[in-house]
Structure formats: structure tokens, C-alpha cells
């Protein structure tokens, strides 16, 4: 179970004045839950993940995670793949693991259709393949907690959909608790068990929404689009910051009304 209770997180901006990034932010996630945090750009999403991941410890408040497995750190996927260019695909995954996990890492990479490039360097791979390596790295230790910071931005839609499907499949197998940050509402609705909406900075939770749609689902599924349309209608003010991030033209559609009922 993950419990986040941040009273205040500030950091100095360029002028040296302190800027409040997060205030009164309370979120918790059940063990094994897939939780998406959605918020406009600059609302402190990345800051929050850095705090949960332990990259930044300077804040008022506390973050607790009861890790039954114990030991290893969380899995983490950044906005960019952030692979070590001087290590091969397999070595990049093993970097965060132990040599004993070699077999598991190979199996994982093969399952993600990277078996052909185990010994290639990341610089030779496409953007989508690099994300897959980063995803394998995040899962190799069977992390109890997985933190994801808009990991699929700047990918073309089919590649991103494929990666989302892989992520959900891995998550269902590992039963990790996932904290997934995005500014793309459809992505959140397609992935999450529950979506928390953050306000503009200083970020705090303004709406929580359980998503009960059956899996597997994709961002372009009629049900997802319908749910998005419904949300936009109910909370136009809340989501104004987010519409810019999603493709507005995709939103209204005829099928939406059917699933609404």
C-alpha cells in the first residue's frame, strides 16, 4: 500500500524565490493498483514522482510504502528511455539487477520481442525499442512499486499502444502497484484502475475517478472515448488544462452516446 501525504514541496526558481510545486497532496494506492495521475503541464507531476522514487527528499510531509517483497528500489520509467549508451540491451537491464537474474532478463526481453537485439547497443535501436528496453529494466526486479513519468510521449500512436499493452500485461503478471503520470486523459482512462486529477501548480488532487471499464482497453476504444467525452462535459473547468494535451478532434463521436447509457 502506497500512502502519499505531502504538505508542501517548494523549490527555488531562477530568481531565487521559492516556488510551491505541490501543496496538500494526498493520494494513496492499494497494493497492486494501477493509479494514473493526470494534470496539466507544470503541475508538479514529475516532482511528485521524484519524491516517491527517493530522488528528492526535501519536502514537508511523508510518503510511505509497505513493501512486502522488501529490498530493491522501485521500477522507474522516465520520459526518455535513459539507457546507458555504452551498455548492450541486456547489460542495460542487468545493470539494475544481479547476474543471477540473467535468465529472467533474457526471457523478459524475448517476450518483448527484443531477443534479436540483446547484444546491440541502444543507439542502434528505434525510439519504440528503446522504450521497451526501459520497460524491461523497470520490471526485471519484480518491483512492488512502479513509477512512470509520461513514458510513452513522443512515440507514434501504434507504437505507444503496443507499449501500453505490454505494460498492462507485465503489470497483471507482476501485480506491482503502479503510479503512472500523464497529461493525456485518454491514456490514463485506457490504463488505470483509478485516475486522480491534479490541479495546476501547486498541485493537489481535485477529483478521483475509478475506471471500471473491462480490460484490455486502448485509448481509441469507444468506451474510453465515451468516458472522456462524459468527463469533459461534467467537469469542463477541471479539464481545460488537459484538453490541449489530448487531441480534441478525437473527442466527440457518435458511439460515445451509446455507451453512455
Amino acid at each position: 500500500m502506497l500512502d502519499i501525504d505531502i504538505i508542501r514541496k517548494t523549490y527555488p526558481d531562477r530568481g531565487g524565490r521559492s516556488h510551491v510545486a505541490l501543496a496538500d497532496l494526498r493520494v494513496s494506492a492499494r497494493a497492486g493498483e494501477f493509479l494514473c495521475l493526470v494534470g496539466p503541464s507544470g503541475c508538479g507531476k514529475s516532482t511528485l514522482l521524484n519524491l516517491v522514487g527517493g530522488l528528492d527528499r526535501d519536502m514537508e510531509g511523508q510518503i510511505r510504502f509497505d513493501d512486502q517483497a522488501g529490498g530493491a528500489g522501485p521500477g522507474f520509467m522516465f520520459q526518455e528511455p535513459r539507457l546507458m549508451p555504452w551498455l548492450t540491451v541486456l547489460d542495460n537491464v542487468l545493470l539494475v539487477s544481479t547476474p543471477a537474474q540473467r535468465e529472467r532478463a533474457v526471457t523478459l526481453l524475448q517476450a518483448m520481442e527484443l531477443g534479436e537485439v540483446l547484444h546491440a547497443y541502444p543507439g542502434r535501436l528505434s525510439g519504440g525499442m528503446q522504450r521497451r528496453v526501459a520497460l524491461a529494466r523497470a520490471f526485471v526486479n519484480d518491483p512492488a512499486l512502479l513509477l512512470m513519468d509520461e513514458p510513452f510521449v513522443s512515440l507514434d500512436a501504434p507504437t505507444a499502444d503496443r507499449l501500453r499493452a505490454m505494460l498492462v500485461e507485465l503489470w497483471q503478471r507482476c501485480r506491482s502497484t503502479v503510479l503512472f503520470v500523464t497529461h493525456d486523459l485518454r491514456e490514463a482512462l485506457a490504463l488505470a484502475d483509478r485516475v486522480c486529477f491534479l490541479s495546476a501548480a501547486p498541485g493537489r488532487v481535485v477529483l478521483e475517478l475509478p475506471v471500471a471499464l473491462p480490460r484490455p482497453r486502448m485509448p481509441n476504444d469507444p468506451a474510453v472515448l465515451a468516458l472522456q467525452a462524459q468527463l469533459l462535459a461534467q467537469h469542463p473547468d477541471l479539464l481545460t488544462g488537459l484538453i490541449a494535451g489530448t487531441r480534441v478532434t478525437d473527442v466527440p463521436n457518435p458511439q460515445g452516446n451509446e455507451t453512455d447509457a
Binding site: G54, L55, G73, F78, E80, R82, L95, V96
Partner: peptide, 15 residues
């Protein structure tokens, strides 16, 4: 950014 990867995955100092 690469140092952050090392930090978040709790790599040992030597590694």
C-alpha cells in the same frame, strides 16, 4: 539524468 537512473534503482556506489 543518467545519474538519476542509478539513484532511483539504488545502485551501489561502486556500480
Amino acid at each position: 539524468r543518467l545519474m538519476q537512473v542509478a539513484a532511483v534503482y539504488r545502485l551501489s556506489r561502486w556500480r
